[in-house]
């Protein structure tokens, strides 16, 4: 059995052999279907390779992607998506856990590094408020997740809708604005809750442990297939 990473790598390599027109048509299919995050990743990638193989042979016979997959790529993709199996709950949980640990890990590493570097030049406040700091962390992670989902949703809806470039740009800009705005808003949250002192190095170490843990989860994820 080939795993997802191998399939994606093969896909990228093979896609280069397509003509420009076919490559564009096919890449839209890839991005559109992949942006549906609830589908089984393994089955999705297997299907995409199948379609690519088919297109490649058809191209050798002088056929275009349009002739193979039809004039309505969105309708065709929706038909495929309808029949693709959903990701198993176990995989979905592991995947969400992976992203969660990654975000948490990088946040801890970020805070640790900032504390250490600034600590070299000035006196810094090492307190971690069990109330406000945890709230801010939870809020940030929720925002990042929401942005991620929003981003995929935006990609999905923009591929086959011929929206004008400015409009597309505006939506992207709005997403970024909401994101930044809420981050700014968070800095107004007053500190509350029991304060503990956490040294920058401890943040750094905890962050690294979280990242290692997430890598380990990713490993399991691969083994599930």
């Amino acid at each position: 059995m080939m795993n997802v990473q191998e399939l994606i790598k093969q896909n990228n390599e093979k896609r280069e052999q397509l003509t420009e027109e076919n490559e564009m048509y096919y890449t839209d299919i890839v991005v559109y279907i992949r942006s549906h995050l609830t589908l089984s990743e393994q089955k999705t990638e297997e299907l995409l390779i199948e379609l690519l193989d088919h297109l490649f042979y058809a191209q050798l016979q002088g056929k275009s992607a349009k002739e193979v997959f039809g004039n309505d790529p969105k309708g065709y993709c929706d038909e495929l998506i309808k029949h693709l199996p959903k990701e198993s709950k176990k995989n979905a949980i592991i995947f969400t856990g992976f992203i969660f640990l990654q975000l948490l890990g990088w946040m801890a590493i970020g805070r640790g590094s900032v504390d250490i570097i600034f600590g070299l030049f000035m006196e810094i406040d090492n307190s971690f408020y069990l109330g406000s700091s945890l709230l801010i962390t939870a809020f940030t992670i929720t925002m990042l997740f929401a942005t991620l989902l929003l981003f995929f949703f935006w990609i999905r809806s923009s591929i086959y809708k011929k929206t004008s470039k400015p409009k597309n740009f505006l939506i992207g800009f709005l997403i970024a604005l909401v994101m930044t705005g809420s981050l700014v808003l968070m800095s107004f949250i007053p500190t509350f809750g029991y304060a503990i002192t956490i040294n920058g190095y401890i943040f750094l170490i905890v962050g690294i442990i979280l990242i290692v843990l997430s890598k380990w989860m990713e490993r399991i994820n691969k083994k599930v297939y």
């Binding site: 088919h54 058809a58 193979v68 997959f69 038909e79 495929l80």
Partner: peptide, 15 residues
Amino acid sequence: VSEGSIYPILLRLQK
């Protein structure tokens, strides 16, 4: 039969 139309069918048969 347009060539691509076999893939939704293959998916359904697998399901």
